[in-house]
Protein backbone atom coordinates (compact mmCIF):
# COMPACT_ATOMS: atom_id res chain seq x y z
CA UNK A 1 0.00 0.00 0.00
CA UNK A 2 3.04 2.21 0.28
CA UNK A 3 2.60 3.87 -3.07
CA UNK A 4 -1.05 4.64 -2.59
CA UNK A 5 -0.23 8.28 -1.92
CA UNK A 6 1.80 8.52 -5.09
CA UNK A 7 -1.01 6.91 -7.00
CA UNK A 8 -3.55 9.35 -5.60
CA UNK A 9 -1.31 12.22 -6.57
CA UNK A 10 -1.24 10.92 -10.12
CA UNK A 11 -5.00 10.70 -10.03
CA UNK A 12 -5.14 14.26 -8.83
CA UNK A 13 -3.01 15.37 -11.74
CA UNK A 14 -5.29 13.54 -14.08
CA UNK A 15 -8.42 14.98 -12.52
CA UNK A 16 -7.24 18.58 -12.37
CA UNK A 17 -5.79 18.39 -15.86
CA UNK A 18 -9.04 16.98 -17.25
CA UNK A 19 -11.14 19.52 -15.39
CA UNK A 20 -9.12 22.31 -16.88
CA UNK A 21 -9.16 20.92 -20.38
CA UNK A 22 -12.57 19.27 -20.64
CA UNK A 23 -14.48 20.53 -17.64
CA UNK A 24 -14.79 16.91 -16.49
CA UNK A 25 -12.74 14.90 -14.00
CA UNK A 26 -11.64 12.43 -16.68
CA UNK A 27 -10.40 13.07 -20.18
CA UNK A 28 -13.79 12.75 -21.83
CA UNK A 29 -15.38 14.69 -24.66
CA UNK A 30 -18.04 16.81 -22.92
CA UNK A 31 -20.33 16.19 -25.87
CA UNK A 32 -21.27 12.81 -24.39
CA UNK A 33 -22.79 14.52 -21.38
CA UNK A 34 -24.98 16.77 -23.48
CA UNK A 35 -26.58 14.48 -25.97
CA UNK A 36 -29.46 13.20 -23.87
CA UNK A 37 -30.76 16.69 -23.13
CA UNK A 38 -30.74 18.11 -26.64
CA UNK A 39 -33.92 20.01 -27.34
CA UNK A 40 -35.08 20.19 -23.72
CA UNK A 41 -36.04 23.62 -22.34
CA UNK A 42 -33.97 25.80 -19.99
CA UNK A 43 -35.25 26.99 -16.63
CA UNK A 44 -34.53 28.30 -13.16
CA UNK A 45 -35.02 24.85 -11.77
CA UNK A 46 -32.76 22.50 -13.64
CA UNK A 47 -32.02 18.83 -13.76
CA UNK A 48 -28.37 18.64 -12.78
CA UNK A 49 -26.66 15.37 -13.71
CA UNK A 50 -23.00 16.35 -13.33
CA UNK A 51 -22.49 13.83 -16.17
CA UNK A 52 -22.27 11.08 -13.56
CA UNK A 53 -24.10 8.43 -15.57
CA UNK A 54 -21.79 8.88 -18.56
CA UNK A 55 -18.64 9.18 -16.45
CA UNK A 56 -19.14 6.26 -14.10
CA UNK A 57 -18.21 3.50 -16.58
CA UNK A 58 -15.10 5.45 -17.56
CA UNK A 59 -13.50 5.56 -14.12
CA UNK A 60 -12.58 1.93 -14.44
CA UNK A 61 -11.17 2.47 -17.91
CA UNK A 62 -9.09 5.42 -16.78
CA UNK A 63 -7.71 3.34 -13.92
CA UNK A 64 -7.04 0.37 -16.20
CA UNK A 65 -5.12 2.61 -18.53
CA UNK A 66 -3.10 4.15 -15.72
CA UNK A 67 -2.38 0.70 -14.33
CA UNK A 68 -1.37 -0.74 -17.67
CA UNK A 69 0.93 2.14 -18.35
CA UNK A 70 2.69 1.71 -15.08
CA UNK A 71 3.12 -2.01 -15.65
CA UNK A 72 4.36 -1.47 -19.19
CA UNK A 73 7.00 1.00 -18.20
CA UNK A 74 8.23 -1.31 -15.46
CA UNK A 75 8.01 0.19 -12.01
CA UNK A 76 5.20 2.46 -11.03
CA UNK A 77 7.25 5.23 -9.53
CA UNK A 78 9.39 5.78 -12.61
CA UNK A 79 6.45 5.87 -14.92
CA UNK A 80 4.41 8.08 -12.67
CA UNK A 81 7.27 10.50 -12.32
CA UNK A 82 8.20 10.74 -15.97
CA UNK A 83 5.14 10.26 -18.11
CA UNK A 84 2.67 10.99 -15.35
CA UNK A 85 -0.93 11.80 -15.84
CA UNK A 86 -0.46 14.07 -18.78
CA UNK A 87 0.56 11.18 -20.93
CA UNK A 88 -2.64 9.44 -20.10
CA UNK A 89 -4.75 12.48 -20.65
CA UNK A 90 -3.97 12.39 -24.34
CA UNK A 91 -6.23 9.39 -24.59
CA UNK A 92 -9.72 10.70 -24.77
CA UNK A 93 -12.02 8.23 -23.08
CA UNK A 94 -15.43 7.50 -24.47
CA UNK A 95 -18.33 5.51 -23.14
CA UNK A 96 -19.28 2.69 -25.49
CA UNK A 97 -22.41 3.17 -27.51
CA UNK A 98 -24.39 0.89 -25.25
CA UNK A 99 -23.16 2.68 -22.17
CA UNK A 100 -23.99 6.06 -23.58
CA UNK A 101 -27.41 4.91 -24.70
CA UNK A 102 -28.14 3.42 -21.33
CA UNK A 103 -27.05 6.61 -19.56
CA UNK A 104 -29.19 8.70 -21.90
CA UNK A 105 -32.16 6.41 -21.42
CA UNK A 106 -31.85 6.60 -17.63
CA UNK A 107 -31.64 10.37 -17.66
CA UNK A 108 -34.53 10.73 -20.10
CA UNK A 109 -36.57 8.41 -17.91
CA UNK A 110 -35.86 10.58 -14.90
CA UNK A 111 -36.84 13.65 -16.86
CA UNK A 112 -40.09 12.06 -18.03
CA UNK A 113 -40.88 10.72 -14.60
CA UNK A 114 -40.55 14.22 -13.20
CA UNK A 115 -42.79 15.59 -15.96
CA UNK A 116 -45.39 12.95 -15.27
CA UNK A 117 -45.23 13.80 -11.58
CA UNK A 118 -46.08 17.39 -12.43
CA UNK A 119 -42.63 18.74 -11.70
CA UNK A 120 -41.50 21.39 -14.11
CA UNK A 121 -37.83 21.23 -14.72
CA UNK A 122 -35.40 22.49 -17.34
CA UNK A 123 -31.83 21.67 -18.28
CA UNK A 124 -28.61 23.62 -18.52
CA UNK A 125 -26.94 24.70 -21.72
CA UNK A 126 -23.52 23.98 -20.21
CA UNK A 127 -23.46 21.75 -17.19
CA UNK A 128 -20.38 22.04 -14.99
CA UNK A 129 -19.09 18.97 -13.13
CA UNK A 130 -19.77 19.09 -9.37
CA UNK A 131 -16.23 18.24 -8.18
CA UNK A 132 -17.45 15.25 -6.16
CA UNK A 133 -14.43 13.15 -7.10
CA UNK A 134 -12.01 15.80 -5.81
CA UNK A 135 -13.83 15.83 -2.50
CA UNK A 136 -14.00 12.06 -2.30
CA UNK A 137 -10.28 11.68 -3.01
CA UNK A 138 -9.57 14.10 -0.18
CA UNK A 139 -8.42 17.10 -2.23
CA UNK A 140 -10.45 19.58 -0.34
CA UNK A 141 -8.58 22.71 -1.41
CA UNK A 142 -9.03 21.97 -5.08
CA UNK A 143 -12.58 20.99 -4.38
CA UNK A 144 -13.32 24.28 -2.63
CA UNK A 145 -11.98 26.27 -5.57
CA UNK A 146 -13.87 24.19 -8.05
CA UNK A 147 -17.10 24.34 -6.08
CA UNK A 148 -16.92 28.13 -5.92
CA UNK A 149 -16.58 28.24 -9.69
CA UNK A 150 -19.48 25.84 -10.25
CA UNK A 151 -21.68 27.92 -7.99
CA UNK A 152 -20.74 31.08 -9.88
CA UNK A 153 -21.58 29.45 -13.20
CA UNK A 154 -24.92 28.13 -11.99
CA UNK A 155 -25.84 31.57 -10.68
CA UNK A 156 -24.76 33.17 -13.97
CA UNK A 157 -27.07 30.77 -15.80
CA UNK A 158 -29.97 32.04 -13.66
CA UNK A 159 -30.39 28.79 -11.73
CA UNK A 160 -32.28 28.90 -8.42
CA UNK A 161 -32.76 25.25 -7.74
CA UNK A 162 -31.05 22.10 -8.96
CA UNK A 163 -32.67 18.70 -9.12
CA UNK A 164 -29.99 16.08 -8.69
CA UNK A 165 -30.23 12.56 -10.07
CA UNK A 166 -27.47 10.69 -8.22
CA UNK A 167 -26.38 10.44 -4.60
CA UNK A 168 -22.82 11.69 -5.05
CA UNK A 169 -23.86 14.94 -6.68
CA UNK A 170 -26.71 15.33 -4.24
CA UNK A 171 -24.45 14.83 -1.27
CA UNK A 172 -21.78 17.30 -2.32
CA UNK A 173 -24.29 19.96 -3.32
CA UNK A 174 -26.63 19.66 -0.37
CA UNK A 175 -24.16 18.85 2.41
CA UNK A 176 -20.66 19.83 1.31
CA UNK A 177 -21.14 22.94 -0.86
CA UNK A 178 -22.72 24.98 1.93
CA UNK A 179 -19.58 24.36 4.01
CA UNK A 180 -17.14 25.34 1.29
CA UNK A 181 -18.95 28.00 -0.76
CA UNK A 182 -19.63 31.31 0.91
CA UNK A 183 -23.23 32.43 0.59
CA UNK A 184 -24.33 29.23 -1.17
CA UNK A 185 -28.06 29.77 -1.71
CA UNK A 186 -29.20 27.32 -4.37
CA UNK A 187 -32.06 25.00 -3.63
CA UNK A 188 -30.94 21.37 -3.90
CA UNK A 189 -33.49 18.63 -4.20
CA UNK A 190 -33.20 15.06 -5.37
CA UNK A 191 -35.55 13.62 -7.98
CA UNK A 192 -36.51 10.77 -5.65
CA UNK A 193 -38.00 13.33 -3.32
CA UNK A 194 -40.18 14.74 -6.11
CA UNK A 195 -41.46 11.84 -8.17
CA UNK A 196 -44.82 10.22 -7.69
CA UNK A 197 -44.83 6.54 -8.49
CA UNK A 198 -47.82 4.25 -8.56
CA UNK A 199 -46.51 1.31 -10.50
CA UNK A 200 -43.26 -0.63 -10.41
CA UNK A 201 -42.57 -2.85 -13.42
CA UNK A 202 -40.66 -5.63 -11.74
CA UNK A 203 -41.22 -7.54 -8.53
CA UNK A 204 -39.30 -9.73 -6.10
CA UNK A 205 -36.16 -7.74 -6.61
CA UNK A 206 -33.62 -6.78 -4.00
CA UNK A 207 -32.57 -3.19 -3.38
CA UNK A 208 -28.89 -2.37 -3.16
CA UNK A 209 -28.88 0.94 -1.32
CA UNK A 210 -26.47 3.70 -2.11
CA UNK A 211 -24.39 4.41 1.00
CA UNK A 212 -24.96 8.12 0.58
CA UNK A 213 -28.72 8.01 0.07
CA UNK A 214 -29.36 5.53 2.84
CA UNK A 215 -26.88 6.48 5.56
CA UNK A 216 -25.74 10.02 4.88
CA UNK A 217 -28.86 11.57 3.32
CA UNK A 218 -31.60 9.79 5.21
CA UNK A 219 -33.37 8.54 2.06
CA UNK A 220 -33.45 4.85 2.94
CA UNK A 221 -37.18 4.86 3.60
CA UNK A 222 -38.00 7.15 0.72
CA UNK A 223 -36.58 4.68 -1.79
CA UNK A 224 -38.63 1.91 -0.21
CA UNK A 225 -41.78 4.01 -0.36
CA UNK A 226 -41.24 4.42 -4.09
CA UNK A 227 -40.46 0.77 -4.72
CA UNK A 228 -43.06 -0.70 -2.34
CA UNK A 229 -45.50 -1.72 -5.12
CA UNK A 230 -42.81 -4.11 -6.46
CA UNK A 231 -42.52 -5.84 -3.06
CA UNK A 232 -38.74 -5.83 -2.75
CA UNK A 233 -37.19 -8.77 -0.88
CA UNK A 234 -35.72 -7.61 2.43
CA UNK A 235 -33.34 -9.28 4.85
CA UNK A 236 -32.51 -7.34 8.03
CA UNK A 237 -28.84 -8.34 7.81
CA UNK A 238 -28.37 -7.68 4.10
CA UNK A 239 -30.63 -4.78 3.18
CA UNK A 240 -31.03 -3.01 6.55
CA UNK A 241 -29.98 0.60 6.78
CA UNK A 242 -27.16 -0.26 9.20
CA UNK A 243 -26.28 -3.67 7.84
CA UNK A 244 -26.16 -3.25 4.08
CA UNK A 245 -22.82 -2.80 2.38
CA UNK A 246 -21.05 -0.68 -0.13
CA UNK A 247 -20.54 -1.49 -3.82
CA UNK A 248 -16.86 -0.58 -3.50
CA UNK A 249 -17.21 2.20 -6.05
CA UNK A 250 -15.75 5.01 -3.95
CA UNK A 251 -12.34 3.29 -3.91
CA UNK A 252 -12.48 2.16 -7.51
CA UNK A 253 -10.02 4.81 -8.62
CA UNK A 254 -7.64 4.37 -5.69
CA UNK A 255 -7.65 0.65 -4.89
CA UNK A 256 -9.37 -1.09 -7.79
CA UNK A 257 -8.72 -4.62 -6.57
CA UNK A 258 -10.22 -3.86 -3.16
CA UNK A 259 -13.21 -2.24 -4.90
CA UNK A 260 -13.71 -5.40 -6.87
CA UNK A 261 -13.58 -7.66 -3.83
CA UNK A 262 -16.04 -5.46 -1.97
CA UNK A 263 -18.37 -5.57 -4.97
CA UNK A 264 -18.17 -9.36 -5.21
CA UNK A 265 -18.89 -9.77 -1.50
CA UNK A 266 -21.85 -7.46 -1.81
CA UNK A 267 -23.16 -9.27 -4.87
CA UNK A 268 -22.87 -12.62 -3.12
CA UNK A 269 -25.11 -11.38 -0.31
CA UNK A 270 -27.62 -9.72 -2.62
CA UNK A 271 -27.96 -12.63 -5.00
CA UNK A 272 -28.83 -14.92 -2.12
CA UNK A 273 -32.04 -12.90 -1.93
CA UNK A 274 -32.82 -12.31 -5.59
CA UNK A 275 -31.12 -12.23 -8.95
CA UNK A 276 -32.88 -8.97 -9.73
CA UNK A 277 -30.98 -6.10 -8.14
CA UNK A 278 -32.18 -2.53 -8.19
CA UNK A 279 -29.75 0.32 -7.64
CA UNK A 280 -30.16 4.09 -7.53
CA UNK A 281 -26.67 5.29 -8.26
CA UNK A 282 -24.50 5.32 -11.40
CA UNK A 283 -21.45 4.17 -9.45
CA UNK A 284 -23.25 1.22 -7.88
CA UNK A 285 -24.64 0.41 -11.32
CA UNK A 286 -21.14 0.12 -12.77
CA UNK A 287 -19.49 -1.53 -9.80
CA UNK A 288 -22.07 -4.20 -9.25
CA UNK A 289 -22.68 -4.41 -13.00
CA UNK A 290 -22.50 -7.44 -15.18
CA UNK A 291 -25.52 -9.06 -13.60
CA UNK A 292 -29.18 -8.43 -13.90
CA UNK A 293 -29.00 -4.92 -12.54
CA UNK A 294 -31.61 -2.26 -13.03
CA UNK A 295 -31.45 1.40 -12.28
CA UNK A 296 -34.44 2.42 -10.24
CA UNK A 297 -36.07 4.33 -13.10
CA UNK A 298 -35.64 1.59 -15.66
Amino acid sequence: MSDVRQWVKTLRELVTYSLEKYGLPLPVDPGVCRRWREGLPRGERVLYTSCMYQLAPLVKRAVDLLEKSRAAEGGAAAWLASAGAKYLARFLLKPSRDEEERASAILKNIYRLLERSGVEVGVLEEEPYSGALLYELGFEEEFARHAGEVYRRLKAAGVREVVTVDPHTHYVLSVVYPKYVDGFDLGVVNYLELVKVSRVKISNFVIHDSCLYSRHLDMYHRLREILAPGRPVEDPYVTGRETSGCCGGPVEAVLPSLAKRVALDRLAKLTRLSDKIVVACPICLVNLGGLDLAEVVE
Binding site: M1, V4, C211, R215, H216, T243, G245, V262
Partner: peptide, 17 residues
Protein backbone atom coordinates in the same frame (compact mmCIF):
# COMPACT_ATOMS: atom_id res chain seq x y z
CA UNK B 1 -2.90 5.16 9.18
CA UNK B 2 -3.09 6.98 5.84
CA UNK B 3 -3.06 4.00 3.49
CA UNK B 4 -5.83 2.41 5.54
CA UNK B 5 -7.87 5.59 5.52
CA UNK B 6 -7.60 5.52 1.73
CA UNK B 7 -9.42 2.16 1.73
CA UNK B 8 -12.45 3.64 3.49
CA UNK B 9 -15.45 4.08 1.20
CA UNK B 10 -17.31 6.19 3.77
CA UNK B 11 -20.19 3.74 3.69
CA UNK B 12 -21.25 5.25 7.00
CA UNK B 13 -22.54 2.11 8.77
CA UNK B 14 -20.03 2.57 11.59
CA UNK B 15 -21.34 5.99 12.52
CA UNK B 16 -24.90 4.69 12.82
CA UNK B 17 -24.06 1.76 15.09
Amino acid sequence: AGPHAMSCTHAGNCRLV
